[in-house]
Design a protein around this nucleic acid. Structure first.
Length: 272
DNA sequence: ATTCATGTTGTGAT
DNA sequence: TATCACAACATGAA
């Protein structure tokens, strides 16, 4: 459920309730659920992985974390965290994080940071990325303050698509490659979105949880990298490691270890 | 049956 | 004060 594109799909599915009055609101969320009772739902929006129910003067933020789910016009056999009834149907959320936030969504969210938004601003992302020092690309892509909506699958797929090793330093990437990463974070998110809607997302994974690199036809690396040690899958052959000068010594050591393995380098074939 | 993963926040230790 | 590590949340696919 959780990555940005999935939330955009949810937003589309909830358009039917925009402008409708909340006839009943219930659930085990630790917010004042009664506040929504009888109010008109102004709009349903999304920002990154956040799903937003906008009311006059406040909004409710739903975050699905790892296991959150929803049902529209049907119910699960589990207590809803939040359930909203309208004249034309109902919206049910389960095992998610729910927050009620006073104020206007536009004062809280910077739409330019949402990779799926019309307002997405790649220049802003670039500026933020340039400010980093030793940040690895695997962490940068998951940073919601820069790439709101990008999740672990998108991270892995983007890095494979642009042939960048997940432990590369952001600031060691050639300018062109950095721009490519920023562009692909958005481009791939839209592919994810389209595939998800067609129920063919998994089928289209190229590296995430794949045993072999589709380009090099060699065994992939499956490991846990980055600040939060997230599952990271990559090809040790075609995904190049870019390191900051300070780390060049380290890099040489790694290279030597790798040379022993003597991986046959093949030419790039796929052009996605 | 057991393990682990599309994620983030809060808490308490350092 | 800031940073860090880890617990907590809790479902369902493999």
């Amino acid at each position: 459920m959780p990555e940005g594109p999935s939330i955009v799909i949810l937003r589309e599915l909830t358009e039917q309730f925009e402008g409708k009055k909340v006839l009943n609101a219930l659930g085990n969320a630790k917010i004042d659920i009664n506040r929504m009772q009888g109010l008109k739902l102004i709009s349903c929006r999304s920002w990154g992985k956040h799903f937003l129910l906008v009311f006059n003067g406040f909004f409710v933020r739903v975050h699905f974390l790892m296991f959150g789910t929803y049902r529209i016009n049907e119910r699960k056999d589990a207590p809803p965290r939040l359930a909203l009834e309208f004249s034309n149907g109902e919206l049910n959320f389960y095992t998610c994080s729910v927050k009620l936030i006073d104020g206007n969504v536009n004062d809280v969210y910077d739409w330019e940071k949402d990779v799926m938004a019309d307002e997405w601003n790649p220049k802003k992302a670039e500026t933020e990325l340039m400010k980093t020092k030793t940040t690895k690309v695997c962490d940068a892509l998951l940073n919601q303050e820069i790439f709101a909506g990008v999740g672990n699958i998108i991270k892995n797929e983007v890095l494979w698509r642009i042939c960048v090793h997940p432990e590369s330093h952001v600031t060691a990437l050639p300018a062109k490659k950095l721009k490519e990463m920023i562009r692909d974070a958005r481009d791939y998110s839209f592919l994810f979105y389209a595939w998800k809607k067609e129920y063919v997302l998994k089928k289209n994974w190229k590296i995430y949880k794949k045993g072999e690199c589709p380009r090099c036809e060699i065994k992939t690396i499956r490991t846990w990298l980055g600040i939060n040690e997230r599952l990271t899958c990559y090809c040790p052959n075609c995904q190049l490691l870019y390191l900051n000068p300070e780390s060049k010594v380290k890099s040489a050591v790694k290279k030597k270890a790798k040379a022993v393995k003597k991986v046959k380098r093949t030419t790039k074939t796929a052009s996605l």
